[in-house]
Protein backbone atom coordinates (compact mmCIF):
# COMPACT_ATOMS: atom_id res chain seq x y z
CA UNK A 1 0.00 0.00 0.00
CA UNK A 2 1.25 3.40 -0.94
CA UNK A 3 -1.09 5.60 0.97
CA UNK A 4 0.06 9.20 0.95
CA UNK A 5 -0.68 11.36 3.95
CA UNK A 6 -0.27 14.94 2.91
CA UNK A 7 -0.79 18.25 4.61
CA UNK A 8 -0.99 21.49 2.71
CA UNK A 9 -0.30 24.65 4.70
CA UNK A 10 -1.64 27.90 3.33
CA UNK A 11 -1.96 31.38 4.83
CA UNK A 12 -5.38 32.83 4.10
CA UNK A 13 -7.52 32.26 1.06
CA UNK A 14 -5.26 34.07 -1.37
CA UNK A 15 -4.99 33.39 -5.10
CA UNK A 16 -1.63 31.74 -4.36
CA UNK A 17 -3.29 29.43 -1.82
CA UNK A 18 -6.01 28.57 -4.30
CA UNK A 19 -3.45 27.83 -6.97
CA UNK A 20 -1.65 25.43 -4.67
CA UNK A 21 -4.89 23.66 -3.76
CA UNK A 22 -5.82 23.28 -7.43
CA UNK A 23 -2.38 22.01 -8.39
CA UNK A 24 -2.38 19.53 -5.53
CA UNK A 25 -5.84 18.22 -6.42
CA UNK A 26 -4.74 17.74 -9.97
CA UNK A 27 -1.60 15.81 -9.01
CA UNK A 28 -3.38 13.66 -6.48
CA UNK A 29 -6.11 12.64 -8.89
CA UNK A 30 -3.77 11.83 -11.74
CA UNK A 31 -0.73 10.41 -9.92
CA UNK A 32 -1.69 9.07 -6.50
CA UNK A 33 -3.75 6.11 -7.55
CA UNK A 34 -2.64 4.19 -4.46
CA UNK A 35 -4.80 6.37 -2.28
CA UNK A 36 -4.17 9.60 -0.45
CA UNK A 37 -5.28 11.66 2.47
CA UNK A 38 -4.98 15.45 2.26
CA UNK A 39 -5.51 18.04 4.97
CA UNK A 40 -5.50 21.71 4.07
CA UNK A 41 -4.50 23.89 7.00
CA UNK A 42 -4.77 27.64 7.13
CA UNK A 43 -1.94 28.92 9.32
CA UNK A 44 -4.01 31.95 10.28
CA UNK A 45 -6.55 29.61 11.86
CA UNK A 46 -4.16 27.02 13.27
CA UNK A 47 -0.86 28.74 14.01
CA UNK A 48 0.13 26.14 16.59
CA UNK A 49 0.02 23.36 14.00
CA UNK A 50 2.38 25.40 11.85
CA UNK A 51 4.51 25.96 14.94
CA UNK A 52 4.75 22.23 15.61
CA UNK A 53 5.72 21.48 12.07
CA UNK A 54 7.98 24.56 11.85
CA UNK A 55 6.38 25.95 8.74
CA UNK A 56 7.99 29.19 7.54
CA UNK A 57 6.83 29.54 3.99
CA UNK A 58 3.41 29.02 2.49
CA UNK A 59 2.18 27.28 0.53
CA UNK A 60 4.05 24.26 1.92
CA UNK A 61 3.02 20.70 1.23
CA UNK A 62 4.24 18.28 3.88
CA UNK A 63 4.58 14.67 2.88
CA UNK A 64 4.04 12.93 6.23
CA UNK A 65 3.79 9.41 4.84
CA UNK A 66 5.45 7.53 3.30
CA UNK A 67 8.66 8.47 5.00
CA UNK A 68 10.95 10.36 4.75
CA UNK A 69 8.96 13.42 5.78
CA UNK A 70 9.54 16.12 3.22
CA UNK A 71 8.54 19.77 2.82
CA UNK A 72 7.55 20.83 -0.65
CA UNK A 73 7.55 24.60 -0.75
CA UNK A 74 5.75 26.77 -3.31
CA UNK A 75 2.46 26.79 -5.16
CA UNK A 76 3.18 23.33 -6.68
CA UNK A 77 3.13 24.70 -10.23
CA UNK A 78 6.38 22.89 -11.09
CA UNK A 79 4.80 19.49 -11.47
CA UNK A 80 8.03 17.60 -12.05
CA UNK A 81 9.57 18.90 -8.86
CA UNK A 82 6.42 18.05 -6.93
CA UNK A 83 6.60 14.47 -8.15
CA UNK A 84 10.26 14.38 -7.24
CA UNK A 85 9.37 15.60 -3.78
CA UNK A 86 6.73 12.91 -3.43
CA UNK A 87 9.23 10.22 -4.52
CA UNK A 88 6.85 9.30 -7.30
CA UNK A 89 9.54 8.43 -9.78
CA UNK A 90 10.79 5.74 -7.42
CA UNK A 91 7.25 4.49 -6.97
CA UNK A 92 6.59 4.21 -10.67
CA UNK A 93 9.91 2.42 -11.24
CA UNK A 94 9.12 -0.21 -8.64
CA UNK A 95 5.63 -0.64 -10.09
CA UNK A 96 6.97 -1.20 -13.59
CA UNK A 97 10.37 -2.84 -13.42
Amino acid sequence: MNTFRLRLYITGRTPQSQRAIDNLRNICESELSGGFEVEVIDVLEHPSLAENEKILATPTLVKRLPEPVRKIIGDLSDREKVLLGLDLEAVSRSAHP
Partner: peptide, 14 residues
Protein backbone atom coordinates in the same frame (compact mmCIF):
# COMPACT_ATOMS: atom_id res chain seq x y z
CA UNK B 1 15.34 17.67 6.25
CA UNK B 2 14.97 17.97 2.53
CA UNK B 3 12.97 20.75 0.97
CA UNK B 4 11.86 21.04 -2.60
CA UNK B 5 10.89 24.31 -4.28
CA UNK B 6 7.97 24.05 -6.65
CA UNK B 7 6.85 27.59 -7.34
CA UNK B 8 6.17 30.97 -5.80
CA UNK B 9 5.87 31.21 -2.01
CA UNK B 10 6.05 33.77 0.75
CA UNK B 11 6.79 33.82 4.48
CA UNK B 12 3.26 34.60 5.60
CA UNK B 13 3.32 31.50 7.77
CA UNK B 14 6.30 32.77 9.71
Amino acid sequence: EETVMTGPYDLSAL
